[in-house]
Design a protein around this nucleic acid. Structure first.
Lengths: 224, 224
DNA sequence: TCAAAAGTGTTGTGTGTACACCCATGT
DNA sequence: ACATGGGTGTACACACAACACTTTTGA
């Protein structure tokens, strides 16, 4: 990008793709769109679209996200960029992949958009995906799992107030393994990132569960 | 990237930038190029260049790397993509940043290219950088440090055969802190990723140091 | 009173950290 | 013999894993 800067170089089309995660029915789900045009017609794809001149990559991803789900102010993180020459049969298309975590209770409106060609799929039961979207998805899931261990991620998938059991279920569906209730609570509480409220969730014929909220950790050194 | 696919969207220029790390004189250094043309003329920049049609992003980064340093088969990892509208005053330029780790003993030829406008700088003593390259650099350093803790990175900065002290020095300059010799050795050896050779490095008037080599861990579960 | 989920502690095991001395060599 | 870096072990604190029973509610 130096002295020989010029317009003689051919430019790729630039898109963003967003893997949108949520928790529904105790399952980890992602939003997919069924294609209705020719390359990979009828196959399912991760939502995405062109980056417009004048916007940042993140803005493009946030715009795409809100177009598909109607929600804004969502946890959004850049994942990786994919640019292999053959990845789109229509030509040279480079995509910057993001992943988003959205709380199930933000989905009221859009939860029943199965009228359209948009659907939530369990990540453990996916259709074949168009383009290299299986690669993108796989990477996003690995990243999500990794972040769950070191970072304060996971709360973004839950309502503001949540029970510890709900949080544990969230971890369990993402990591796809069961955890010990006592150890889980001990660990989470030791991080000092959630605070108990004096509200309870009454749910059925059993003891009500206390609701907690996520609190940004103080400006200390370590995250965790 | 859907039904409305077309060429009506304006396309950005696409570049790769590569933060090239090495260890020299017990310091962590990166390669910078002094610009001789107008935007940011005379300032220093991370090496980079246009992605050519038909190559992968990684190939573009590897090409750029070998053009600058003359070395190939180097540890290369995609870092992040930067596309803020204002980042290049000449127009819309999106860059995919990579970082590379290269062993000091691969640098014989190029070590003295200070004849040119190319120079190795200690990461702790950098000039002002062009574009948003300070951001790229900062992120790459964070990533390098993080990987040092969970992944088998670090060996790429050393010759095939190295002493444990050299490895520890590598960790120390990257993390910018001193470490305990006994604990360091215990930890590294427990990972079973290095193997002792029966060669020694004779260095001065002191006991020779055993040389070790990195061995790919067996296909077990955990990395570390 | 029963079913169903919420909530709660202790113990053992392993991992990270702090710390000081002898060893092999060249001069 | 001495200076220089190479090489080694132990004790303590802390994090993680395994494990079972009581509590509160609605029906």
């Amino acid at each position: 990008m130096d002295s020989e800067y010029s317009y003689e170089y051919e430019r790729p089309a630039l898109t963003v793709d967003v893997v949108i995660y949520t928790i529904q029915d105790n399952e980890l789900k992602i939003l997919l769109i069924q294609r209705n045009t020719d390359p990979y017609k009828d196959m399912w794809a991760i939502p995405g679209g062109f980056v417009l001149k004048g916007e940042t990559l993140e803005q493009a991803a946030a715009r795409e996200l809100s177009e598909e789900t109607g929600v804004k102010d969502i946890y959004l993180e850049q994942l990786y960029s994919f640019g292999d020459p053959g990845r789109d049969p229509r030509g040279w298309v480079v995509t910057v992949a993001y992943f988003a975590l959205i709380s199930s209770d933000n989905l009221k409106i859009e939860a029943d958009t199965d009228a359209k060609d948009v659907k939530w799929f369990s990540v453990y039961d996916l259709p074949r995906l168009a383009f290299d979207h299986d690669k993108i998805l796989k990477l996003s899931l690995e990243r999500l799992r990794a972040k769950l261990e070191y970072a304060n991620v996971g709360f973004q998938l839950l309502p503001k107030k949540f029970t510890l059991t709900a949080l544990q279920k969230t971890y369990e569906v993402i990591l796809n393994k069961t955890m010990d209730k006592r150890n889980f609570r001990k660990k989470i509480l030791s991080f000092n990132i959630i605070k108990e409220t004096d509200e309870f969730k009454r749910d059925g014929n059993h003891r009500p569960a206390r609701l907690f909220t996520y609190v940004e950790p103080p400006p200390s050194k370590k995250k965790h």
